[in-house]
Design a protein around this nucleic acid. Structure first.
Lengths: 318, 318
DNA sequence: TCTCTAGATGATCAAATGATCGACCCGAAT
DNA sequence: ATTCGGGTCGATCATTTGATCATCTAGAGA
């Protein structure tokens, strides 16, 4: 197959002239003495044979690679990976917040009425704070998670209030703790007209922005007293690795059925199947939790950072 | 200028999606949430800032770089650089011959009558031999250099005969030695009607394919007995480094005026100014001679190899 | 507060590119 | 010698890309 070698030689020449030299295919055609479609074919060959290596010389290049891989593997609509900020401290979610805010703004820009639902968490809160003020009185925002802790205090991280303030939109808060103290309390809460009304609005939401929670001693769920230490131990015993809206999941992303699950008041994940569920979560520590959410197939979009993305791509053997 | 950093980030993203991901600008636009012209600008920025590195993974890549540099530096119409063949021996001109033959074929393909002139040398001979047979009776080929040695033998490397045979074209040979033994002999030769007729045909040629000769003990001019040892010494004393059609040149490419020059019967180089003078020469040893021809501005095209091209690009500080 | 300027933005069009399709050529088998 | 199949080549068209220009916005200065 000496013929093939010659073709490759010429393909390399064409590729060089095109990609490095920046010539048009017409110029290359006359320089190489072939027709324009011929150059076309040579370039296709060069790419196909891997003669052309493109490298993007920017920290984001890695992020894009992982983003692409994650989108493909888990069938997402998008995955934004923000670079790891070397200056940032441990809990810094600024980059993540900005990236999330951009996604959020894409929805808000629309002029026709829109219903969006929000979860809780530092990331969600930071996202809405990173958003610039924009007048959108036609929109509606609704919380997917109760914003009252077991001790009666309000959830510090609820984003709906801030977002509605910034946009002048309507707000719907879920008047409940994330986890009821008993099955009866949960049923009583869910029986309230107000609760049902809010749930109905959430059902109509087009997209949902949620955080992803870890299940360990540093879990927000535990630190904010939504669950007790004993309950945490129970979850850990059942191999819970993360939670979405308070619903604990195992490694495979299946919601764990246990005493706590039965008392969670958040809207069921299945309800969001038809919506665009977008998760915001960053940091290698959150990796297992994010991966679980992905494996469960719950997510349509993900905004994360380089270290979490690396954990994910390294765990799933791509 | 934090604004600029953000732009660059996005430019990197766009570049990645475009060059690595192979998306269209429309897809990138919707993914990044900017307009299509916006993506355009981002990509332009990415290229301008050198974020995009393209590497052609083929031995020819180097050649193309040098080719480009030589074309630019010496204002050529083209410069083909063939890769150094690791298998090839010292005097192997096969690649060179094939590359030259391709250039030659580009001329021959034409259906309207064409007059081409040829110099001598191994490379020229190999070129016409590498050419595939093609019927072109309408063309005319003429030699620019006498094909008779001082001892009366015919020049082994004359290409016109072979070429005319292969194409069925008319042939015009210069009935003279390259270097006449005296000024009188030269004038006598040039006075011949036959000589003048051939010269006139050469004058009408559209392009000329010539070799480049070294001036040293291994010079073809000397080894084929066109000049004597004493004459060689004289040329070396005058800093001759190469020759075109028997005309010796110094490093700057100026034709050296000396006793030998005055007896050279080849057609004067100046006559070829309006034509496309294409030189074929390869090998690092020929570097100085080729460089001289280039510096003299005699050439419109060059077919050479990697080692000679390297010598040239390294000598001229690009 | 108004106006001016510089830069960004999006509509529009020309150029370049990729892809399809029919024509053609060469080699092989009958 | 002829015909068939595989592969290549170039004309043509739809898509994509690059560039220009008018418009708009933000910010500075009067």
């Amino acid at each position: 197959m000496d013929k093939f070698e010659l073709k490759l030689d010429q393909a390399a020449r064409a590729a060089w002239l095109s990609y490095v030299g920046g010539r048009t295919q017409d110029e290359i055609a006359s320089q190489l003495g072939v027709s324009r479609p011929g150059v076309q074919r040579l370039l296709a060959l060069a790419r196909q044979e891997g003669l052309v290596k493109v490298h993007i010389d920017h920290p984001l290049a890695n992020c894009m690679v992982m983003s692409e891989a994650i989108v493909q593997r888990f069938g997402l609509d998008f995955c934004d990976v923000v670079p790891a900020d070397p200056d940032a401290g441990d809990g810094d979610v600024h980059y993540l917040a900005v990236a999330g805010a951009e996604r959020l703004a894409r929805y808000l820009d629309r002029s026709d009425p829109l219903t969006l639902s929000l979860g809780t968490g530092r990331a969600i809160r930071a996202m809405v704070e990173a958003l610039s003020r924009i007048d959108r009185p036609q929109h509606r925002f609704v919380s997917l998670v109760g914003n009252v802790a077991r001790d009666g205090s309000s959830n510090r991280y609820d984003g709906v209030m801030v977002l509605a303030d910034k946009t002048g939109a309507e707000r719907f808060l879920l008047p409940a703790p994330v986890v009821a103290s008993s099955l009866e309390e949960k049923q009583a809460l869910q029986g309230q007209r107000l609760f049902q009304a809010v749930a109905e609005v959430a059902r109509q939401a087009e997209a949902a922005f949620v955080g992803v929670g870890r299940i360990d001693r540093r879990a927000t769920l535990f630190q904010d007293h939504f669950i007790s230490e004993m309950e945490l131990e129970e979850l850990l015993g059942l191999d819970a690795v993360g939670e979405l809206l308070g619903w604990p999941m195992n490694q495979a992303g299946e919601v764990i059925d246990c005493s706590i699950t039965r008392r969670v008041t958040s809207l069921p994940l299945g309800m969001l199947r038809g919506q665009s569920l977008v998760a915001l979560a960053a940091g290698r520590d959150k990796g297992p939790a994010i991966l679980a959410a992905l494996r469960g197939g719950w997510l349509k979009g993900l905004v994360t950072d380089e270290s979490a993305a690396r954990y994910i791509t390294e765990s799933e053997n791509f």
